[in-house]
Nucleic acid binder design. Structure first.
Lengths: 210, 210
DNA sequence: CATACCATTACCCAGATGGGTGATTTGGAC
DNA sequence: GTCCAAATCACCCATCTGGGTAATGGTATG
């Protein structure tokens, strides 16, 4: 992320027109290069590794796998990737969800190219382009933030817990024995430093784990 | 609500002309019978029990007790009653208020008889006749915010639940018996339509109750 | 004044939960 | 090749939970 290097950008956007205009704006600007474009999250997931961009612009409302759903998967492929959401309106709900999943900011489609470039620059510098109201909400919710120490399977169990599902049913859902579920639950408790399902759920939601 | 039974319908409408026309349309249709008509909510409230209709068509703008005000009272007399509002224009404000009070849908006065019968049929089948714009407003309002139905005490208990506190400890904290805590917890479950602490906590957080 | 709702308490009981200890297999990390 | 974490499964047991039913006093609303 040095200043003297061309910043590689990939774009995931199902609207060809918007995609094209973004691409043009970014390619004309100095220091940026759009090295890949995709029409779906699925396509991006398949080809991300080949491009290895510095920044990924990701439409929040994609057909198939949504932008929000795609975030964790993309991060898994390239953990340090800066994901910037593309949204029509800054509907706090969706944008917020995206940020919780690991996006670093968002840009509003159709805003000026100056604004877009400024946003990208902000990301490169380690910033997070977003509106003040979103920023406030984020700060509030991220204050007691901690690294996710839970495994994928544990997250899966945690989500079941949050739905009030009991061990027996979770076991059936995951095709394992209730003993296994109990083991997972115990491990979740240890990792989150809690002693009950309700407490685990609260902590998980507050930390954005689920 | 079987198919082979005559659907009993009552109508509450202060305009005699409209009332008459509705009555005629419904009586001519197969499977429906208008078994009672009233010119006011007061009259309907007094006589509802005698008629015990399957569906009640209720004018939204009645003199005296308005249609909207009448809904909860009518539901109290016959809880499973399907109340369908009658309105001139589908002004979202009023219709929306009616739906929130427990009406299952609405019909626009003066529309074709085909439309009316279709709406009634929809109700019988468990549907909710309404225009797309109203439907959208309903969905929108039910997604993020919901009426807080919980009492202060219940919220207090709910917060304890979210911390993973068990009944015994909650009882000590609130200076009441564990039986009382159990009673509160059960009431919370009923009101939130959940069956466990974890599920209650999830719902409470998502609804912003705690 | 009647009715409704709230907060409170009580009892019963099947089933679920939380905690402890231990074991096996598999796949990556070193 | 060894070590470890993750996922899987087992058994025990005290305690807690969820659900049902019932009752009482207080307060607000009508």
């Amino acid at each position: 992320m040095t200043q003297n290097r061309i910043i590689k950008i990939c774009i995931v956007e199902d609207d060809a027109l918007i995609l094209k205009s973004l691409q043009m704006v970014l390619n004309q600007a100095e220091g940026y290069a759009v090295t890949g474009t995709f029409f779906s999250a699925e396509a991006a997931l398949e080809n991300l590794k080949e491009h290895h961009p510095d920044v990924l612009l990701l439409d929040i409302d994609l057909p198939g796998i949504s932008g929000i759903e795609a975030i964790p998967r993309l991060k898994k492929l390239q953990p340090e990737l800066n994901i910037v959401m593309l949204t029509v309106h800054d509907e706090s709900e969706l944008v917020f969800a995206a940020l919780r999943k690991g996006a670093v900011g968002y840009l509003v489609k159709g805003s000026t190219s100056k604004y877009l470039l400024q946003g990208i620059a902000e990301v490169i510098e380690g910033g997070a382009p977003m509106s003040p109201s979103i920023a406030r909400a984020v700060i509030a919710s991220f204050a007691p933030k901690t690294e996710t120490v839970l495994t994928d399977r544990e997250i899966e169990v945690l989500e079941k817990l949050s739905n009030g599902t009991n061990n027996k049913q979770i076991a059936e859902d995951l095709f394992v024995s209730t003993n296994t579920v109990k083991a997972h639950v115990k491990n979740i408790y240890k990792k989150l430093h809690v002693h009950s399902r309700a407490e685990a759920v609260t902590k998980a939601i507050k930390k954005g784990l689920i």
